[in-house]
Simulated assay, not measured.
Amino acid sequence: MPRSNRPRNRRRPEVDERDLAAALFGGRQTESKRGIEWNVQPVAAPSALKAYTCPGCSGQVAAGTAHVVVWRADSFLGDERALSERRHWHSHCWKIA
């Protein structure tokens, strides 16, 4: 019978589901542009279910297109207000803004 080279009795490290999601889809990041802090959340193509207007180019971010959602991180009016004012950008448009 051939010998197995598979290690035995070794525990696999537990993976946090949030870390896995961040690795697969990219996590929310904070970026600074023109002295303002912004939260930037990537949206994978399969998760993009609606069409939006990109504020960078005024073109359409079509459903099924990977893009980013951006909102202020340092809003003095509060997080809820900042979230309600979030915008969907083409990834390229956000990079060059």
Rank of each mutant, 00 (worst) to 15 (best):
P2M: 00
R3E: 06
S4H: 12
N5V: 13
P7D: 09
R8P: 05
R8F: 11
N9K: 15
N9W: 13
N9E: 13
R10H: 05
R10D: 08
R11N: 04
R12Y: 02
R12T: 10
R12I: 10
R12H: 11
E14W: 05
E14R: 05
E17D: 13
E17G: 05
D19F: 11
L20A: 15
A21Q: 12
A22W: 00
A22G: 03
R28T: 11
Q29H: 03
Q29P: 01
Q29A: 12
T30Q: 12
T30I: 15
E31S: 03
E31C: 02
S32I: 15
S32P: 07
K33M: 08
R34W: 10
R34T: 13
G35E: 06
G35R: 12
I36N: 03
N39D: 07
V40N: 05
V40F: 05
P42N: 07
V43D: 01
V43H: 00
A44Q: 06
A45S: 13
A45E: 12
P46F: 14
P46M: 11
S47K: 13
A48G: 12
A48C: 12
A48E: 06
A48V: 01
A48I: 01
L49R: 04
K50P: 00
A51G: 10
T53H: 01
C54D: 03
C54H: 04
C54A: 07
P55R: 00
P55D: 04
G56K: 03
G56Y: 00
C57E: 02
C57S: 07
S58F: 13
G59S: 10
G59Q: 10
G59I: 01
Q60Y: 01
V61N: 02
V61A: 01
A63R: 06
G64L: 04
G64P: 03
G64Y: 04
A66K: 01
A66Q: 03
V69P: 03
A73S: 10
A73E: 07
A73Y: 06
D74M: 05
D74R: 06
S75R: 09
F76P: 10
L77C: 02
L77K: 12
D79I: 05
R81C: 09
A82L: 05
L83D: 06
S84I: 03
R86S: 14
H90F: 00
S91I: 12
H92A: 13
C93T: 09
C93M: 08
C93F: 11
K95I: 02
I96R: 13
I96L: 08
